[in-house]
């Protein structure tokens, strides 16, 4: 699984980021390094959940505006600043769906759907694709988030846990349950 260098931080990098945050609290112009560092990551996260590119750019701009407006309230909790930004992004995207302005979209490559058969090394046939799509579409939002982040965005469990504000063990347990559930349903349909 690929490591996201823009997310994973050493202790020194976290300290450096803290300095940037403190500076941004004093002067919004000092928010630039944080904006430049996380722009692409936040946009990708938003666009993954939307159908429209333009809306994704608008929401990304909104996320950074909210972050800058609320930077005074930000408290360091030992995790990268990105996890705070991702939570703002999640809330903004969900707000958009609630207001019925946009459809919730799931974006994946066909090869990403193989995860459902990976652990048991079962063959994955073309006929499964619409079935897996259907099953994923029926997942609860929290479970869907897990699948998206882990298998479609290829994020490590540590990062998934930090974004969802849960422990890494909890993320792994939940993920295991979701896969078991999907497999069970797939088996039922196949029969």
């Amino acid at each position: 699984m690929a490591i996201n260098p823009h997310y994973h931080h050493t202790e020194e990098q976290l300290q450096e980021e803290l300095l940037w945050i403190e500076a941004a609290k004093e002067n919004p112009e000092h928010f630039a390094p944080l904006y430049n560092k996380y722009y692409k990551g936040i946009f990708s996260y938003v666009y993954q959940r939307l159908d429209s590119k333009d809306t994704a750019f608008d929401i990304t701009a909104q996320v950074f505006l909210k972050a800058l407006s609320n930077i005074q309230k930000y408290e360091f909790k030992g995790v990268p600043f990105a996890s705070w930004l991702y939570r703002i992004a999640y809330n903004e995207v969900m707000q958009l769906f609630k207001s019925n302005q946009q459809l919730r979209a799931v974006n994946a490559d066909v090869s990403d759907l193989r995860f459902i058969c990976e652990s048991h090394e079962e063959p994955f046939f073309e006929e499964y694709i619409p079935l897996v799509q259907k099953l994923i579409s029926q997942l609860e939002e929290q479970d869907l988030q897990l699948v998206e982040m882990r298998y479609f965005e290829k994020r490590p469990f540590k990062e998934v846990a930090e974004i969802l504000n849960i422990t890494e063990v909890n993320a792994k347990v939940k993920m295991h349950r979701v896969i078991e559930k999907l497999k069970k349903e797939l088996k039922k349909i196949k029969l």
Partner: peptide
């Protein structure tokens, strides 16, 4: 309601950075 897109073309870094 949900829309499932398969193999959507990826945006280039250049295209993303243009909006930054």
């Amino acid at each position: 309601s949900l829309k499932f897109n398969l193999n959507r073309p990826k945006l280039s870094d250049e295209e993303i950075n243009k909006q930054r």
